[in-house]
Design a protein around this nucleic acid. Structure first.
Length: 193
DNA sequence: AAAGAGATGGTCT
DNA sequence: GACCATCTCTTTT
């Protein structure tokens, strides 16, 4: 299923993460699912994000480039997937110029299509709990380490971004980021009102 | 409704 | 060996 006529330009993502983050609200996250008997498209609207930069003590890139964070220093628009607390797979959209260590964490998504697949992956949870947290987004969209580094702007990727024409909110909610111990005063979490 | 704790494994010191 | 960009379940107001 095609989502929207708008092509997302890579240059759009080559700005600093705190600029890109609120503009990513209401964009669509799309994942191909190969479970069951036929391919299904799982998609959802991004409603909460967080920005991380290399100047930022809470960021994985704060102490320089490493094997884990390598794709965050690569070209914008690619996926940085990391394992959180040994259990959860969390998805970031890389931003900034090639060589910058920046990204936007996808914190919450509202499912649009493939809801039956999401419900199965998030068994025994009510719809409100399907993808309202970064680890839950990982579960709902079947994100794994194999998605690390994929180009989210290439519409042939199994994991990608789309735009269905819904503009970002004119007044996004902004507040402190969640689950960090450093950089807590920086209001780089953004949410749809 | 809020607070606390266990799970669980890669990454970095 | 410590530290997590978290989630879930249990216990306590």
């Amino acid at each position: 299923m095609a989502v929207g006529p708008v092509v997302l330009e890579r240059s759009w993502f080559e700005r600093d993460a705190p600029i890109v983050a609120p503009l990513l609200l209401n964009k669509v996250l799309i994942a191909d699912s190969y479970e069951g008997t036929s391919a299904t498209v799982v998609s959802g609207r991004i409603i909460e994000v967080e920005a991380y930069t290399s100047d930022d003590p809470a960021s994985h890139t704060y102490r320089g480039r490493s094997r884990r964070n390598d794709v965050m220093f690569g070209p914008a628009g690619h996926a940085y997937v990391y394992t959180s607390y040994g259990i959860h797979q969390c998805l970031n959209v890389v931003t900034g110029r090639d060589g910058d260590g920046q990204g936007v964490l996808i914190r919450a998504v509202v499912p649009i299509t493939g809801i039956d697949i999401i419900a199965a992956r998030r068994a025994h949870r009510v719809p409100r709990e399907f993808a309202n947290g970064p680890g839950k987004v990982g579960q709902a969209f079947g994100i794994s380490a194999m998605h690390n580094g994929v180009d989210l702007l290439d519409q042939s990727s199994r994991l990608r971004l789309g735009d269905d024409g819904t503009p970002p909110p004119t007044t996004p909610l902004a507040g402190p980021r969640i689950g960090i111990t450093k950089g807590v005063s920086t209001p780089w979490r953004f949410r749809v009102p």
